[in-house]
Write a protein that binds this DNA or RNA. Structure first.
Lengths: 235, 235
DNA sequence: GTCTATAGTTCGATAGAC
DNA sequence: GTCTATCGAACTATAGAC
């Protein structure tokens, strides 16, 4: 079951390909990434990519699934622990369970997790068939678990607002994980996105306040649709 | 200066190319988009693309600049009006000035603005040289104007938190404009992202609450760095 | 399992006629 | 300005030797 590579300091060729693909896909996206660049970075022969993964498409999917399974397993573990006690967890704890596993995986896997975060941002922003399929396949289930959790700990929040809360939380968090350094540029270095613990703490404060505001704003009308707000006509 | 096309119901070839390119780039991203698909959609000869725009790269840039200039002009107009009166505008009005012009442009230009919103999401999530350059060139200036405005209307908020506030606001808003229908999927149709007025109203409520929470959380310590929060250790 | 060599496409861009 | 035709350069994927 375990056959040592010719070079002792290298893992299996398949693993080397997965890691290299993660980096190349993250930097260039699916279309602009080339199997040659992946083979070069992995230091394996080009034909091996197709021997192990058949097509570029299936390689991409393998990379995506590997890391998302790891992250979602951690999320489920934390969620289960939070709800196993006698008292109800705080909303902030739910959000930490949503955000932290991504950066923890990023720290562990030799930077591969950070590459993955950029991949996810690309996939989540894509509207092609592959992006939609992978997002749904790997994240619809865990998304509904977090939406359920939000409804449990935020009194009176509607399902509709809980779903929007999850969407806003994810849309804030994923670009932070990908660390595009834009906050640093806009603040002339004042904001640092490499201290992810501080960044997440900040984001959790922001998101929790937003969610509670949604719960209140929507609770005042019984209709189950978005309230007709009074802040959309500026002048 | 104005030469009518052979087909009277069609505008200039260059405009037709720009519109078609906007749609194709939005659907497939820069790399996966082909000049042939753009030429077909625009119903012009392939060679005309290179005649008018020289390269695929410069065509992409022209599409991006055209619409972002239009949106940012509107934003500046609203901002100027808000700060021209005697009383200080509300934070919610600043946020509406940030979010609404994108959807207004989307409504006007035969759906082109919605294609552009997807382009922006792709560019903003990219880490390649082109994405970084275009984002900085078209959006760094307007970003700083909104960060300034946030600091003016939110008492005691630090520059650092104002920058993060802008980042969170944009990261929430852009995916909404792109309308990926994910909220609808996760809510089994309960959330609708095609009613952008309601979506924006919802987002403004969420973002304003988040910003005020950031201002408070950061105000309690004088150090100018992120406070060390107490919500990052779940169990 | 790993390699070389290459088939088979597709793409961006241009030359040159009209 | 608009067209046809095509070049040359990439790419994915495979065949087949070892």
């Amino acid at each position: 079951m375990l056959q040592p590579a010719a070079n002792a300091e290298r893992r299996d060729a398949a693993d080397a390909i997965l890691d290299a693909a993660e980096a190349v896909f993250a930097d260039h996206g699916f279309a602009a990434a080339t199997t040659r660049a992946i083979a070069d970075l992995a230091k394996v022969n080009l034909a091996l990519i197709h021997y192990y993964f058949r097509t570029k498409e299936q390689l991409f999917e393998a990379v995506f699934v590997r890391r998302s399974d790891e992250i979602n397993d951690r999320r489920r573990g934390i969620l289960a622990e939070l709800f196993s006690g006698d008292s109800e967890p705080a909303l902030e704890q739910i959000l930490v369970a949503l955000l932290r596993p991504t950066i923890e995986v990023g720290r562990m896997s030799n930077g591969g997790g950070f590459h993955y975060a950029r991949m996810v941002v690309n996939v989540a922003s894509g509207h092609d068939e592959r992006s939609t399929r992978l997002t749904g396949m790997q994240y619809n289930g865990i998304a509904r678990e977090f939406i359920d959790a939000i409804q449990k700990v935020v009194p009176g929040i509607s399902r509709e607002m809980a779903v929007w809360s999850y969407m806003h939380a994810i849309n804030i968090a994923m670009p932070l994980m990908a660390r595009n350094h834009r906050a640093a540029v806009l603040s002339d270095g004042l904001c640092r996105d490499d201290d992810l613990d501080a960044v997440i703490d900040n984001a959790v404060t922001f998101i929790a306040a937003g969610i509670r505001a949604l719960a209140i704003s929507h609770a005042v009308d019984e209709a189950g649709r978005l309230r007709s707000g009074n802040n959309s006509t500026p002048a």
